[in-house]
Structure formats: C-alpha cells, structure tokens
Design a protein around this nucleic acid. Structure first.
Ligand SMILES: [Mn+2]
Ligand SMILES: [Mn+2]
Ligand SMILES: [Mn+2]
Ligand SMILES: [Mn+2]
Lengths: 215, 215
DNA sequence: ATAAATTTTTAGTTTTGTCTAAATTTTTAT
DNA sequence: ATAAAAATTTAGACAAAACTAAAAATTTAT
C-alpha cells in the first residue's frame, strides 16, 4: 500500500465512525485537503484492491480488509505518539504531525516491538484507544463535559479536538488527562459552565466543554 | 526534499567518500538499483537545487549544501539504527532496511531529541560514525583485519560490509564489536588468516578479513 | 590514430496522484 | 412535481520519477 492509499484509508476509517452508513466523497476531500475528483479516482483504486466497498454516488464503506488495515495504521500512529511523549519528552500538542509520517513505516515487527517497549499502552496521549496487535481496543464509556451532571465528580479521559491550539489552551488552564472536574453551575443562556478544576474555579465555554471527554 | 532526492543524495555521499573526484552515473544507478537514464534526470534536478555540481559526462560532486544535507540523512539513519538495537532489541543485521525508511522522517526536533534519548552515541551498531547536530563525526584510525600485524592484539570496531549475510556469519562465529583479535598466522598462498578470537582459534578467509575493521 | 567498447545523455513513454472544467446524478426547496 | 442547488463523476491535463531505445560522448584497445 502506498502512503497516499494509507492516508485515504485512515480518513475513511475516522469518518465511518461518525457516518457508518457510508462516507461522502466531499468529507474525505475535506479531511485530506484535496479535491473531490481526486477522491473519486482513489476510491476506484481502493475498491479494486477490495479495501473499500464503493458504489458511484452512494458513498463508501470499508471492507473487512480495509477496516483491519485502517486500524493497523491508527495503531501505529497512536503508539508513535506515546513514544514521542513518554520517551522523547514531546508535549501532547507537538506529536500529531510527526506521527502522521511515522505511521507509514512498514515493518510489523517494528511496531510490535515498540508496543512492548512502551508496555502495551491502551491509550494515546490524547486519550484515544490504541488497537492491540489483533486490532482490539479498550472501550470506554466517556461523556462530553457539556453533557455532565451538576455537582458530580468526573475525570478528564480524553480530548475530541486534538488541535495544537486547543491543547495549548488546556495547558494554559492546567487541564490534562486525569484532571478532576466538578461542574458547579451551567448558564442556561449560552451553556457556559462554571467548573472546579484542581480546586480552582474556571469558566468554560460550551465549545470547550464539547471537546473534553470525562468519565 | 523528496524521499527519492534524499536517497540519491545519500548514495552520492557514500560514493564520493571513495571517489572524491566525481561520482559516476552508472555507480549511482547500481547502488539505487535504477537505470543510468533515470540518474541523469535526477542529477539535473539536484543540480537545479544546488545540491550537486553536475557537468554532463563529467560525473557529479556534492555542493556544500548537498554535503550537509547528506550528512543529516546519514545521521538520522544511524541514530535510528542505534534506537532499534539498543532500545527495541533488534539484532544488528535486522535494522538497516527499517532505518532506510525512518531516515526520511522530516522533523529536526525529533532527531535531536532521539539523539539525546540515546545519550549522543558516536557510532552506530555497525561501527559507523554518527554525525552530530553540526555534522561532525568522530574520526577513527581503523585498519582492515587483512592489513594487520601478526601477533598483535586488536579490537573489532566495525564492519565494512553490513549485509545481513555477513553479520549473521559474524554472529555464528561469535564476533561482535569489541571482540579481541590476534592474528597468529597468515597463509601466503590465499591470505587466509589463523586468528584467535575470544581465546578460540578460527580460520578467516581474505574476503572476511577485508570486511572487518579493527584498531 | 582509428576503431571498438563503454558510459552517459536524450527522446519519448508509463504510472501515480493530483488538478480544472464540464457533465451527470442526487438532494433540497418551492 | 419541477427547478435549483449541491454533490459526485468523467474527461483531459500535468508533474514526478521511473523506464526503453537510440544517439552522442568518452574511454580503451589495436
Ligand atoms: Mn494524532
Ligand atoms: Mn492522538
Ligand atoms: Mn544501515
Ligand atoms: Mn549502520
């Protein structure tokens, strides 16, 4: 598989978690920063290789083959992110782009040895689950901070948006995976939250609360 | 720089250590397993980018730019090899092909953090020197085992051929970097050596002796 | 010095992945 | 139900990096 094919496969995987019925050409183009016509070309090729099920105008889904391959790319991406943070001391907002390159390194042995070296982590630095050697991931019952009960205690277990801007905002607010949240008040007008984090009270907009996973 | 350009640059670097006057098109084609005509095309492109000095029919040399870039690729290759052997537990004959891919990962920060994580190694698992962040390498006065004095003690410090076959042969003979050699006899007919390694005597062909560096 | 052999370059194709512009199909709105 | 809008596909083109075959330059041998 080429790097380009792998990138398409991974994007289709991520999008099909949200739209399992079938992923749109335009959605793929948007994620890959390319044109719809290029996507159509690639879908035909992936279809030839039995990695996706593609019907003109009807969107695309992953085949069993494609699903397995996509999960292995995600596995590599997330294991490399753990390596970069845990071993090399990168911040969690710095690792995504490097992992985008590292995820295309071919060796199976490499990734399995890396997995072992990292002690078989179940989650990446952003709280996303890492498929094991058989593609199995830990399932977590997580909620968005925006959906949470008042005056109950929650732990931060992940971020939905893992853009550098958002992660840096969290750093500034001293919010990290494991931080404890108690929502004290919810402003009904704009859904702004008054939240106790690390025994300090801060105000959190609805947009922020919609991108923080808690448990 | 594309992966292909980087591969050409690295090959030109290695070849120019042997023929500093200028590297032949055919030699490059041989190393990259490609055709001479493809090499010519690429030389024109690298020349455009001021990475090589190229004159039709006259061979090619690296410019200052090209030399610096090539050394940084070699740096990445060798640091990744150290990582694979030291941290992930790969054998020294298993790492070259994986490092061929890893050497093309773009981030400067990554390689400098890796360097630090590995404690700034000066040599890779095959005894080859690793350029530091400024491109400077430790210079070693090494000899081939075939050129050595009789009954004097030497340490193995590197291999010239680092093919898997040769390295596996060395494993079988329990020869590794650091092994102590004393040449007891040299057969004048075919230059076969009788060598004491690890207090055992073994016979070593001229071809083998020509691929072992000692000090 | 000339001819033969070798090396290198040029010219013309191919494949991969992209693009633009136009055509077609599907979806949405009236 | 029809028209307008949006999404998708097709057709044709391009750049990168490779190839084959032929031409040109250089080197080697007689
Ligand atoms: Mn990521
Ligand atoms: Mn991640
Ligand atoms: Mn190597
Ligand atoms: Mn090496």
């Amino acid at each position: 598989m080429t790097i380009s094919e792998e990138n398409y496969l991974k994007v289709i995987y991520h999008l099909s978690l949200v739209s399992p019925k079938g992923v749109n050409t335009n959605a793929i183009a948007g994620m890959l920063d390319t044109k719809a016509s290029s996507v159509t070309d690639m879908l035909k090729k992936l279809s030839e290789k039995d990695l996706v099920a593609y019907q003109k105008y009807q969107g695309v889904t992953l085949t069993e083959n494609g699903f397995r391959s996509a999960k292995m790319i995600v596995r590599k991406h997330r294991l490399w992110e753990v390596f970069l943070v845990e071993k090399l001391g990168f911040a969690w907002d710095e690792v995504h782009d490097i992992a985008e390159e590292l995820e295309h390194i071919k060796s199976e042995t490499l990734i399995n040895k890396l997995d072992e070296y990292l002690d078989f982590p179940a989650f990446d630095p952003h709280g996303d689950p890492i498929p094991d050697v058989n593609g199995v991931m830990k399932k977590v019952n997580k909620l968005l901070l925006s959906e949470v009960e008042i005056n109950k205690e929650y732990q931060c277990v992940g971020v939905k948006d893992s853009s550098s801007e958002f992660l840096k905002y969290l750093d500034k607010q001293k919010i990290a995976l494991g931080s404890t949240f108690v929502v004290k008040e919810k402003e009904s007008f704009d859904d702004t939250l008054l939240v106790e984090v690390n025994s300090k009270q801060i105000t959190i907009s609805n947009k922020i609360a919609n991108n923080l996973y808690v448990q």
